[in-house]
Design a protein around this nucleic acid. Structure first.
Length: 276
DNA sequence: ATTTTCTCCTGCATGC
DNA sequence: TGCATGCAGGAGAAAA
């Protein structure tokens, strides 16, 4: 569900919650159902009584730094956090409840249970099983450079869209923003990644950065399930140029938006605007 | 080795 | 109305 801008939006919401409602986890309880992976051993026991010191993000992972063990939260497709008062009715697919005091409770809900939690060691996080294969952050101008993208795309037979969704190449770009970034860069999602010119790499990197930055500013994209940690919706869907618009006309040239499945994921583009 | 398809899960839209 | 089918923003495993 959430790509980088959505995870960043959730992170911002969680930080606000911990600032206003306190960061001490007085109580913790969880559902009996496993998420994508079994719950970490003694997860709730380890959490209760600890304070959340900070919430960071790497790729699409949230990293909770606490006075006890640090842990990560991955939202999968439908994971979301919300703050409610203790007496609010429970909802289907609530999986974790963190009592924050003042009658407030922070709840993790995940319909499809593709999300998961795990304890991590903050030292050496980049070398951990979850992070060791990850590429650079797209907003890191040093590491995610045109030269990096050009060199790593050489001889790649995969499609350009699959290439930029490969978390080993660059993290955070999911199915929506991949199509949107390629539209902005004027590049065909179906072309071979190995065909990228140096100039195309420059254009693509700029497009990815702009799309993600604007989406963060808009609070992410709410197509179906995404909710900010405050329970609100993101507004970037109002700016989508191609995603979910097959059969409609291009906002720029009026040509019909096309749709095709690439590597199992729906892909949208304008064959007039994206001829590079 | 690289690339695509399958799989985990539930809910919703669509079509017969 | 009911039922079958397909699809959904992730991503690792399995298969090609």
């Amino acid at each position: 569900m959430p790509e980088l801008p959505e995870v960043e939006t959730v992170r911002n919401g969680l930080k606000e919650i911990f600032n206003s409602s306190g960061s001490l986890v007085e109580t913790a309880s969880r559902s009996q159902k496993a998420l994508r992976f079994p719950w970490p051993r003694n997860f709730c026991k380890e959490l209760s009584g600890q304070s959340i010191l900070n919430v960071r993000r790497r790729a699409k992972y949230l990293i909770f730094e606490t006075t006890g063990k640090d842990f990560i939260s991955h939202l999968g497709m439908t994971g979301n956090w919300r703050l409610e008062s203790q007496e609010s009715p429970k909802k289907a697919h609530d999986h974790l409840r963190l009592g924050l005091g003042n009658g407030k409770v922070l709840i993790y809900n995940d319909v499809r249970r593709f999300g998961f939690f795990d304890f991590v060691d903050s030292e050496g996080l980049e070398e951990s099983r979850w992070f060791s294969h990850l590429g650079p952050e797209p907003l890191d101008e040093q590491k995610f450079s045109p030269d990096y993208l050009f060199c790593n795309s050489r001889k790649k037979q995969t499609t350009l869209k699959s290439f930029i969704m490969d978390q080993r190449i660059v993290v955070g770009v999911g199915n929506i923003y991949a199509s949107e970034a390629l539209f902005r860069a004027g590049l065909r999602p179906t072309q071979k990644a190995g065909r990228l010119t140096r100039q195309a790499c420059v254009n693509l990197i700029v497009a990815i950065r702009e799309i993600l930055t604007e989406a963060i500013a808009q609070g992410g994209t709410t197509i179906k399930d995404f909710k900010t940690a405050g329970g609100g919706e993101g507004y970037f869907q109002q700016k989508l140029m191609v995603y979910g618009r097959d059969g409609e006309s291009c906002h720029v040239c009026g040509y019909g938006i096309r749709k095709k499945t690439l590597a199992g994921r729906s892909t949208f583009w304008c064959s007039q605007c994206q001829n590079g």
